[in-house]
Simulated scan of single mutants.
Amino acid sequence: MANVADLYKKTTSFPVVGPLVGDRLFSLAFAQKAPYFASIRPRFTVVEPNHAELVIPKRRAVQNHLGTVHAIALCNGLEAAMGALAESTIPRNKRWIPKGMDITYTAKATSDITCIAETDPEQWTGDDPDLPVRVKGVRDDGTVVIEGVIKLWVTEKK
């Protein structure tokens, strides 16, 4: 399978398309790979090894009864960012699967939300199959509305 970071870079660097349209094309294609991601309409803005970011637009379809972005929509955004990071970072001889999520809601999600996933390069080189990915969601004003860890199980391919 092609490296997701390479696909993002190619999609966003087409001279005819430009980076903004390329972001949208990549995001649409990524959301088709796991259809439940399409419900949040993610727009990836950064996809590289050890770091991925996407924006969840605040719109009626992802709001709760309070008019804020729903907690599950936020978790879907964090998982999509983590998935792009994992596919961009994992060594070719390994595979990953989500094992769990430990999340804290820290503020109301009252705007578009930028979902960020991060790891350190050395996390992918060890023998420990448990790999924590740091995740957070940030409002337009810089306030963190959700943060935590998505735990991956990383093993050798058979």
Rank of each mutant, 00 (worst) to 15 (best):
N64D: 13
K58R: 12
L66R: 12
N50K: 09
A71G: 12
R59D: 08
V55N: 00
Q63F: 08
L74I: 10
E87R: 15
G83P: 09
L66F: 14
T45K: 10
E79D: 13
R92M: 14
L54A: 04
L85K: 07
M82S: 02
E53N: 01
H65A: 08
V46P: 00
A71M: 03
T45R: 05
A52M: 00
I72R: 10
I97W: 15
P49R: 01
A71R: 01
V46M: 01
A80Y: 03
G67Y: 04
N64E: 03
W96D: 12
S88L: 08
C75S: 11
R92N: 14
P57H: 08
L66P: 04
T89L: 02
A81C: 06
N64W: 03
K94F: 14
A80G: 09
H70E: 08
L74K: 04
T89P: 05
L74G: 07
N76I: 11
A73S: 13
R60Q: 11
P57Q: 06
C75I: 12
A52Y: 00
T89S: 14
L66G: 09
V47I: 07
H51S: 08
E48A: 11
E53I: 04
L54N: 02
L78V: 06
V69A: 01
A84V: 06
A86N: 06
R95N: 14
T68N: 13
R95S: 15
G77V: 00
M82G: 05
A81D: 00
H70C: 00
A81W: 08
L54H: 07
N76Q: 10
